[in-house]
Design a protein around this nucleic acid. Structure first.
Lengths: 201, 201, 201, 201
DNA sequence: TCATAAACGAGACGGTACGTCCGGTCTTCTT
DNA sequence: AAGAAGACCGGACGTACCGTCTCGTTTATGA
């Protein structure tokens, strides 16, 4: 008694009531991804996700404000295999490694579906757009760090617009992902690396 | 049939039935664009377009198979100010001119809204996706022509992957358009031109 | 042309647009009744009605504000077989005839289901309650007319509370209907007639 | 194990554990009635009752199987002021006394709300319907006893259908309660008494 | 005095129905 | 035949409520 009463920092009550069911949480994310990849033509519905996850719709809306938010969390969870931030001492090597990993990830059907769907949800739903922006920002930051290191070593001109380089990378990625006009072939990372670096020296 | 076709002088054809009303046609496209640009948060509905254009819904579906198709025609009409295919004899000059015009167009709020909306419609509607792909292809072809001319003059390496270059341009365009993380500043065309060419020499 | 133009009172436009689909209208009422009678335990859903009627849910909500309103219209349509207002010159004869018809109607499973369901909807939905009140009022009026005639002939005491008599009739009806503790047997009309009249002489 | 199993005389299971909280019990019934009478338009929810009573929902469902059961207990508790079973030796006197008490109870707003709500819950929930039937049965029995006594004294014809008389009383009661078309005025008991008895002599 | 057991407030959960919204089609009358 | 008006089917949306299921806490025994 006196313990809890005297608890000086006693800021927030210890949470009473049933706690969030992590199994349901996971089941929802799993179901969302599974449906995205399996259902080729994909009006993936909230009801569908709920049924597939064996979950009540309310449970979804309790934790995610929007369908897009579900997909985004599925994406971040799926992509937790961290983007590498290689530091070999050589910009071309670092960059190629980064690009290889990035394009490899984008080649996974699940990831590709998620990104496509998220882009669709983001338009027309500012909240999802913001979430997506935050997600991409961490990727942009990682790439930017690599470039800055190279620039520090003189591998890029001092006045190089690093933001432009980053956009060229992710622009290519999203463009091919969304328009689907060309695949991410194995040699692409090396070719893009060469092009970017010699373009910005 | 032959009646209407042979009707060059178009004198007095019995012609029962009303002819296509071009005013309505235009009103629809105008309304679509107006709604896209004005309505900040934009569930631009077909009903809304119809009402705004003072037109029956059926009149819309008589001429366009899908909501996305309306937007696409609005886009092409709006962008009929033809993309230039400059031929100055110098690749850097040609390219910069092309990019300047392209980025200038993308900076118009109406165009930007249209492209964003179309991207959204395209996902989940394969037909619109195809239309959009056709639209972009003409742009890609124009750019490709410029690049081939430069390559013919030795301004690009013989083994340059022109498709990659094109994707780098349009990737940047769509990326900044959709993610909205950076604007199309005046100097961008020149900077990108320099970067691309020296990257692919 | 001139007909409609010359229409002198021509107050309101002649109604443009597609007209209400009477087939759908009927199908909905039919489906509602069919479901009520067949589905023994009957949370008859709006979706169910829509599906059974082969109709979009919106079509239902366009014309009826509430589920209860559907049932009420189904009831009035079903009960249009007018309550008789017999006038034989003898109150006992008139009353017995009226009661026989009334109890006969209440014995139909469809009617009984409708009345039970409506009573349920009426509680908790004031609008339906009002509709139901209006419906019952016409029945009360019919009975009241019969009684007044008898009273005019001296078959009932001049100070008889006719409202009470009416309530005794319909009270019995609804009570047995809702509580279901006793059926409407053939002799009931005659017995109730005798009781009421000798009770109010 | 064998301990508890072998316990054949199973006399007094000691009952360890916290005991039922009567304060909560009462709070729930109070809250239910308060909400029914105050909340004019009344989707009186279980969650609402729980919050109003300062009680967890489980505490409600531990003691009552259904929302309707709560209301029914609230009703019985509220109506424990026992229905009198007067025995003055005169049927008219007994009956008038009984009716006066009954109508008086039905005039209380709380009782009226409870009965209306219970009628609603009973439809669509057979269990509540059964509970309600049991409740009304005790009232019917009381009235029936009075009538039988009178019949024994020759105040009613020997072949009188007592069940019909009872239904006439409770029919009137429920009808006016549910339809609300007429109040329970002070003179009603006397008038109904006279009518019923002279109707069934 | 402590272990066991039940009841408690809180609140998340699965499920079902609700009433609304939109896309694309169909129907009516007018032009 | 084409147009404006607007009803239609289908199907997803997000909310509300019911009755169940955990949590951690509190209160009563019996060992």
């Amino acid at each position: 008694m006196s313990d809890s009463d005297s608890e000086p920092a006693g800021k927030h009550r210890p949470h009473t009531g049933r706690r969030r069911n992590d199994a349901a949480h996971e089941a929802i994310l799993d179901a969302a991804m599974r449906l995205l990849t399996t259902a080729g033509g994909e009006p993936v519905t909230v009801d569908t996700i709920a049924r597939e996850a064996g979950v009540g719709k309310q449970t979804i809306y309790r934790w995610w404000p929007t369908k897009g938010a579900i997909f985004l969390e599925a994406l971040t969870r799926h992509a937790r295999i961290e983007v590498p931030s290689p530091d070999t001492g050589s910009l071309p090597a670092d960059l190629e490694q980064f690009l290889t990993a990035t394009f490899h990830g984008a080649n996974e059907p699940a990831t590709a579906s998620l990104l496509r769907t998220l882009a669709a949800e983001a338009s027309g739903n500012p909240y999802v757009a913001e979430l997506l922006r935050e997600f991409t920002q961490t990727r942009r930051d990682a790439l930017n760090t690599i470039l800055e290191r190279g620039q520090g070593r003189g591998e890029l001109a001092a006045d190089t617009d690093l933001g432009l380089m980053v956009d060229q990378v992710y622009g290519l990625l999203w463009y091919r992902l969304l328009l689907g006009n060309a695949p991410f072939t194995p040699g692409l990372a090396k070719r893009l690396t060469r092009t970017l670096i010699s373009g910005h020296q």
